[in-house]
Every structure is written in structure tokens, then in C-alpha cells.
Write a protein that binds this DNA or RNA. Structure first.
Lengths: 179, 179
DNA sequence: AGCATTTATCTTAGTTCTGAGAAATACATT
DNA sequence: AATGTATTTCTCAGAACTAAGATAAATGCT
């Protein structure tokens, strides 16, 4: 957070023609834009810590999310895991392959649908998640402790509604707009 | 692509045979974990819409973020842009290269530091951001409209504090843990 | 001034994931 | 049963990065 002495050069830099900003937006729009920015920054900041934590055990965030889902919900079809952790179909194949290679997950046949495969924790995978989950949870608790408990619940409630609304929103394509 | 079926969420699953759940956590920890989950999901949901929107103009989210930053703040050193949009040093070189190739950005020498380079919008880049920003902002407004204005401001305020606290948090390494 | 350290960008190799499409299977309708 | 459509996973090319190190220039310390 060191301040540069570049502000004197800024006047030398060619300022934008018509220095006033013609892209003025309503206060409502500004609030929405602001929310989008702080949402992204907060997620990135927390994510960096969580990511570093699971990396200590040789896992990526996405890998950990799969292990956690399989631990808490039991064996799941690949498609179920895919929708839950929000990756592409190619991505889930790739990720499960890697977890299989690490010995943490195994594929199992689905008796009622021969196209489908279950992903299930191996004993080693279950031992792994059991071992790292407590410190993982404690770390997240510390990272979000900038908000007190009531504020965390308030934020979670708002974010849950925001997420659901955004996920189900069908944004109409404004196809008649200029290029 | 379509994540329509969300029946996964309500399907209650019988616990796997033999998997007692010894990983019980305190209510405080559960609140923190819940916040982390809904934060990630909300960000992903909004991000998907924003990403699809800028993709209509042949831009990635990160590219758009650079253009927007340069438009609203004027020419910036690559390192400044890098810290602002949170990419690696290699990443900012890669991204600016690509924007230069698209004719939207140009590198300029820094008179006071011969190592450094400014990134600045070209006329074409400025025209681009002027053209797409209004509909972009309107789209974000729609995507976050699941919360009313007061709720958006409340959420933004909480997320701002959460983000700042998380970004400045020094999480102690629990190095004595087994591997 | 001379030398070590820091800073800013770039290079290269590798990682993580996406998107499009293929193959196999299931399901629905005739 | 046959045919067409939907779904489930996998394959493959390539996009969008990251991490580590290289290079060059600025800065700090005797």
C-alpha cells in the first residue's frame, strides 16, 4: 500500500477528452454496481485463504469441495456433483480422475443406469476429510470474523436470496441493441 | 449449460451405512461455513450473468474489468492494474497483450521509471467501453434485483467489511499439524 | 561510487478448467 | 419393435490463467 509519486505524472498523461464522465448512472445503478464489486472482492479475499489452507494438503478448492460433498452427502452421481460444485461436464471428469489418481475417490457403477457413475470416497479419502475438516472450519471462522455472528447470519441470509434470484434469473437477451 | 434442475437440493439422503458423522461443529462454525458457501454461490451466479454479457462483445470478465478501470481512472501502471483486478504479474502481461492485440489498449512509457509501463485506452477502447457500459450496468442491476435497494446497500456494507477484514487477515499457519 | 536489495515487467512451462462434440444408454412415442 | 429425443459421461483442443524465475532498472546502504 505504498503511495507512488505518479500523481504528478498523471497531469502529464493525456487526460480523456471531455474530462467529465458521460457515463453517469442513477444512484440505484451505482448501488448495484457497488454490490457486484464488493461481492467479488469479498469472495476473492476469503477464497484466497481457503485455497491456501487446502493447498497445504495438496488439494485445490474444487477438489476439497468434492470431498466435502461426498463426505456429507454420501456417494453421488457425477452429474449431481457437477451441478453442486458448478463445473462443466468435462471438468467433473477431469477432477474425479485426479481424485481417483490420488486414491481419495473411486468410481462405482450405477445399477439402474449403465451410463452413470457414482463418485464415492475411498477409506483414504474419508480419513483425509476427517483429518483436515476441523482446522479447515476453524480457519474459515477466523477469516469471516470481521463480522460478528449476527452480521454473518444477516449477510448469509441476504446472499442466499441474492444467489437464488441471480441463478434463476433469465436475463433477456437485448438482441436489438447495437453491436 | 442450463442448470435448471435443482431438485438435488432437497433430496434428503439416507446416511451411508457405517458413516457416523463425528465432524460436528459449533453453531458459530456452522454460521461461518454457511456464509462461505452462500458467498461463493452468489458470486458465481452473478458472475455467470456478467460474464455472459461481456462475452457478447468478445471480452472476458477480466478484460472488461481492465477497460473499466482504465476508463474510470485513466492510464495506470501495469502493477496498479494488477493489484486492482487481482491477477498475477504474468497474468497482467498476458491480458494487456491481448487487449493490445484487439486494439483497445496501448502501452506507454513511464518517463520517471524505465522499468514501468502504463496501460491506456486507445480511442477504440474508449469507444468500446462507452458503448457497452450502459447495458452492462443495467444488466447487473437486474441480476441483483432479488434484493431491494436497501438490502443491496446493507449487503454491500457487510461485504465491504468482510472483504477488508479477510484481505488483511494474517491466518496463522498451523504448522504442527500432521500431513 | 560500489554493491546488495527491491521493484516492475516479461518469459516459459504447467495447471485448471471450459466448450463442443462423441458415444452409450435411457426414455417416449408411435 | 423401431425411431427419435434426452441424458450421462467422456474426449480433446484450447482458453485463461498461475508460479517461478529472468531481466532490467530503481533504490538503499555503507
Amino acid at each position: 500500500m505504498s503511495l507512488r509519486r505518479k500523481s504528478d505524472e498523471e497531469t502529464e498523461r493525456a487526460p480523456l477528452p471531455g474530462t467529465a464522465h458521460p457515463l453517469e448512472v442513477s444512484p440505484e445503478t451505482q448501488t448495484a454496481l457497488k454490490l457486484w464489486v464488493v461481492l467479488s472482492r469479498a469472495q476473492a479475499a476469503v477464497s484466497a485463504h481457503v485455497s491456501a489452507d487446502v493447498a497445504r494438503h495438496g488439494l485445490t478448492l474444487t477438489e476439497f469441495a468434492i470431498l466435502e460433498a461426498l463426505y456429507h452427502r454420501g456417494a453421488m452421481l457425477l452429474g449431481e456433483v457437477q451441478r453442486r460444485i458448478l463445473v462443466s461436464s468435462g471438468g467433473i471428469t477431469f477432477l474425479v480422475d485426479r481424485l481417483v489418481a490420488k486414491g481419495l475417490v473411486e468410481r462405482q457403477e450405477c445399477p439402474s443406469d449403465r451410463r452413470a457413475r457414482y463418485a464415492a470416497l475411498t477409506d483414504e479419502g474419508e480419513a483425509m476429510i476427517r483429518r483436515i475438516f476441523p482446522s479447515h472450519a476453524a480457519m474459515i471462522e477466523r477469516v469471516v470474523s470481521g463480522l460478528d455472528l449476527a452480521e454473518q447470519e444477516e449477510a448469509a441470509q441476504l446472499l442466499k436470496r441474492l444467489g437464488h434470484a441471480a441463478a434463476s434469473a433469465d436475463i433477456k437477451e437485448v438482441t436489438f441493441s447495437n453491436v
